[in-house]
């Protein structure tokens, strides 16, 4: 899908900017400076306004991330279940990007992680290493 297709898809929608950015990110892996320019012109917003939105939300990237991303929950419930010990025991792996996320709603079975839309719970060091290796 091209950027023009994405913009056409959301024509006439109320408050279309976030849905557009989600689609752009899903399609291209990031929201580029060029995309911001085109979106701004299409929605009759300034580039600064669109840039402000893109940079406000944790989900949007300005540059592509070539590595597989694992989102590891490090909020209180997973802390209580030992996620920090997992983090310090992790073998550094430059081929995988480990991101911190605050809460996946799996708070009774943490430590928990998400890869794409896949969810993983009751992680210990061995399971986490296996998950990272499988990416």
């Amino acid at each position: 899908m091209s950027l023009a297709d994405i913009l056409a898809r959301h024509k006439g929608r109320e408050g279309p900017l976030l849905p557009i950015l989600h689609d752009v990110q899903a399609e291209f892996g990031h929201v580029s400076e060029d995309a911001i320019r085109t979106i701004a012109s299409d929605l009759n917003l300034t580039r600064a306004e669109v840039h402000g939105v893109v940079s406000f939300y944790h989900d949007y990237r300005s540059t592509p991330e070539p590595r597989p991303v694992i989102k590891l929950c490090r909020a209180e419930a997973c802390q209580a279940r030992g996620v920090e010990a997992l983090v310090s025991a992790m073998t550094p792996n430059p081929a995988v990007k480990v991101e911190t996320v605050y809460c996946l709603g799996l708070c009774s079975v943490g430590p928990a992680a998400m890869v794409g839309t896949g969810v993983y719970a009751r992680l210990d060091s061995a399971k986490l290493e296996m998950l990272v290796k499988s990416l």
Binding site: A75, E76, A77, C78, Y102, C103, G105, L106, C107, S108
Partner: peptide, 10 residues
């Protein structure tokens, strides 16, 4: 539902 320790909405 962003609060850690909550999952009822989910």
């Amino acid at each position: 539902e962003g609060d850690s320790g909550t999952f009822a909405d989910r």
